[in-house]
Amino acid sequence: MKNVLNKRNLITLVIIGVLFFVVQLLIKERIITAYMRSNIYWIGIYIILGLSLNMIIGITGQLSLGHAGFMSIGAFAAAVVLKTNPTLTGLFIGIGIGVLISLAVSFVVAVPTLRLKGDYLAIATLGVAEIIRIVLNNLSVTGGASGISNIKMLMSWPLLYTFVILTIFLTHNFKNSAIGRACISIKEDEIAAEAMGINTTKYKVIAFMFGAALAAMAGSLFSTTYYIVKPDSFGVNTSINILILVVFGGMGSLSGTIIATFIIGLVNIVLQPYAEIRMILYALILIIVMIFRPQGLLGSQELSTKLLPNFKWKRKEKSS
């Protein structure tokens, strides 16, 4: 197992540990306020959402416009379970149920649409997210249009951090495997991928379901962070917000998505007092980025400890 405990992995582990304890300490010393904490949770949850969508759009090149739909499945699954079982066990059960439903729904959407070449998925996902929203609006167990409120708030820095690291671990491993290579080859050239013996439908479905499952997980975390969920919070606007993270960070770049989420999280904080012009400024920033870096911040490159050993220190400062 010398593969696992090499120098690079050790450095990464040390960074992960240090970042955790520094933020933990800052929270304990009340240097990070409750308001800041809520922003950190937002960033963490959206990192998971961005990374999960990156598996579908950035890695595999399949445009999905309904990611918030899968997020809402996880959000309501956790909310319902937490209502009767307001414990961490309840949260994990909720996550499990949300992930399973999300896998089933994404499978049903993916198999017919992903067999075709072209952007049928975009339209199908747009529709499915709407269907999910309408179903939730009319379902009594999930509280109909008013949704579920007073959900037990279990979110904490250790909980968030565990799930963010888990997601980074899984998406990074996915990307850097034979499965990830198959997905990337589909994005690069679907016909050539098929000619190289890649079962393109299979890998598109896998990537889509993987992304949908992670989105559901993020949705469950969302429930227990903001203690209220409404079907209308998971409309197309939310899907677009997630999409922006992927485009802004760079298609296929995991570190790009993470950095983009930090930046947008910070922008949100800075623009908080100017609610009216916030959306305009937000759009302006994106337009400027798209003009000067149409490939996104990092393109398809990754920042890694191999290239820039100091990089993750910067991340720590940003989150503190």
Binding site: L170, N173, F174, S177, A178, I179, G180, R181, A182, I184, S185, A193, M196, G197, I198, I206, F210
Partner: peptide, 15 residues
């Protein structure tokens, strides 16, 4: 990518 069929692990092996 052309040699992808040589991989002897599945999705969980990869993840």
């Amino acid at each position: 990518i052309a040699m992808n069929h040589e991989a002897r692990y599945g999705l969980f092996g990869a993840l």
